[in-house]
Structure formats: structure tokens, C-alpha cells
């Protein structure tokens, strides 16, 4: 998994400005090709021009619809992530450090984990109906397993010599957990939190698309049924941008929280 998360660490530093210029050049070419394509495709419904999408972006931003729906989706993401962290991280630490807990929980986790959160949507529709609880449940479920498994792996991989040293110094078990195991496992926990947020952000779109009365996924589906393709694209751009920014933020957070682990995690 770390393969995926570590590759896009860009070579920051002296070439930063050059990187921005290359980025702008590539994206300008892309937008130009898109514009040319939109001129060739006669239907504005199928492929609106980038200008139309920009206008839709401006309109939805001005009337507050963009921010309103984005805030709702982000609030759902935060709430379900918080719940997942509060439950999965302690359980993961227990599973990683205690054979008893691992024996108790490993089998049910391995049985439930392959069932994608998205596959729960129909059952959740029946249980919760359309509303807040459905996307919250789906996102919580999606975030829970990467966090649990990542935390357990991180806690199990803590250097034994560290724990032995702490024991020799007569620290209590709870102090060892707090001062040795949690800090040592923190980089792994943060990496799995990033994976969990990314998965959860994918699930919010699916959950809102089918079963919520608001949010970004709902807005996309609503404007599709209104056949307003530029607005659909504007919301898609928003989803991508927010996903990118959340990941950036979490990467920054792990840089601040675990500066000692950056050589390994950021390649």
C-alpha cells in the first residue's frame, strides 16, 4: 500500500517554480484540446466547452450552492472519519499488541472487510432510508477497515527493543502503550488514515448519489437529471479539488506530527 502513497511525493525545492510552469503548460494544452473538442462535438449537452464549465462553477459558487453542498459532504467526511478513528485506532492497537484480541477479532474482520462499503448501500437504504445516516454509515464502514488493519500492522511492527527498554526502566503497561507504542505506530496510523479518507471520499459520492437529499454526490445526480452538463462538470471538479486538498492536508499533518518518519514515508 505504501507504494501508492509514496510515489507522488514531488521533488520539491529548487525546481518548484519550474514545476508550476510545467503544470500550467500541460493543463493549458489540455484545456485547449478540450475546447477544440467541444467545438467539434455539436451537442453542448455531451461536451460543454471549458468556458461553460467555468461559468457554471462561478454561478454555483456565487449562489452558495457549491459551498453549501461541499460543506455538507465535508462535514459527513469529518464526522464519519472521527468515529472511525475513535473506534478503529484503539481496537487496532489492541489487535496489534495482544494475541487474545487478535484471535478474537481477526476472523470477523477478515470476513467483513472484503464486503465493500458500497455493497451495503441497498441494505442501508432499507435500514436508514434516505438522509444523513446512510452516507455516514457507508463512509464510516469504508474508513474503518483500512484504519483498523493499518493500525494493527503498525502496532505489531514496533521495535521489540524499544518495548524491552521501556520495561527495563519499570514503566507501567499503560505508559508503554502511550509513550512507546503509540508514537512508534503513529506513521503507520497516519498512512492508513490517508487511505481511509481517500476511500471514504469515494464512497461519499456513491452514497449521496443514491441515498441522500443533499451533498456533492446528490448535486451531481440532480444536475444530470436536469441535463445541465456544465454544472455536473463543475461539481466533479469540486470533488476532485477537495479530495486533493484533503490529502495534501493530511500529508502536511503527518509531516508535523511525525517529522522523524518522513524520510521513509515521503520517499
Amino acid at each position: 500500500m505504501s507504494v501508492v502513497s509514496s510515489t507522488n511525493a514531488k521533488a520539491a525545492g529548487p525546481t518548484r517554480l519550474g514545476g508550476v510552469l510545467v503544470y500550467l503548460r500541460t493543463m493549458a494544452l489540455f484545456v485547449l484540446a478540450w475546447y477544440a473538442g467541444s467545438l467539434l462535438v455539436p451537442s453542448k449537452l455531451l461536451l460543454p466547452s471549458p468556458l461553460a464549465v467555468a461559468a457554471a462553477l462561478r454561478d454555483t459558487a456565487l449562489n452558495g450552492e457549491l459551498f453549501g453542498n461541499a460543506l455538507i459532504s465535508l462535514a459527513r467526511l469529518s464526522a464519519s472519519m472521527l468515529a472511525a478513528v475513535v473506534i478503529a485506532v484503539p481496537l487496532g492497537l489492541l489487535m496489534g499488541r495482544s494475541r487474545l484480541w487478535n484471535d478474537l477479532l481477526e476472523l470477523p474482520v477478515e470476513m467483513l472487510r472484503p464486503i465493500a462499503g458500497i455493497a451495503w448501500i441497498p441494505l442501508a437504504l432499507y435500514l436508514f432510508g434516505i438522509g444523513h445516516r446512510l452516507p455516514l454509515f457507508i463512509m464510516f464502514y469504508t474508513a474503518f477497515f483500512p484504519l483498523l488493519v493499518g493500525t494493527a500492522a503498525g502496532a505489531a511492527a514496533v521495535d521489540r527493543r524499544l518495548i524491552a527498554a521501556a520495561r527495563t526502566m519499570g514503566l507501567s503497561r499503560s505508559t508503554i502503550m502511550r509513550r512507546v507504542i503509540v508514537p512508534a505506530a503513529l506513521p503507520a496510523i497516519l498512512v492508513s488514515a490517508r487511505l481511509a479518507v481517500a476511500a471514504s471520499w469515494t464512497a461519499v459520492v456513491a452514497a449521496e448519489l443514491v441515498g441522500a437529499p443533499n451533498g456533492l454526490g446528490y448535486a451531481i445526480e440532480y444536475y444530470r437529471s436536469m441535463l445541465s452538463t456544465p454544472t455536473v462538470m463543475a461539481f466533479i471538479v469540486t470533488i476532485g479539488l477537495l479530495g486533493f486538498l484533503t490529502d495534501k492536508g493530511l500529508r502536511q499533518l503527518s509531516r508535523v506530527l511525525t517529522p522523524w518518519a518522513q524520510t521513509g514515508a515521503a520517499q
Binding site: 469515494t202 466533479i236 470533488i239
Partner: peptide, 9 residues
């Protein structure tokens, strides 16, 4: 970062 499901519509 654009999820596959977002482009579904």
C-alpha cells in the same frame, strides 16, 4: 483525486 463514481453521470 476525481473518484470514478463522480464521473459516472
Amino acid at each position: 483525486p476525481i473518484a470514478a463514481l463522480a464521473i459516472l453521470p
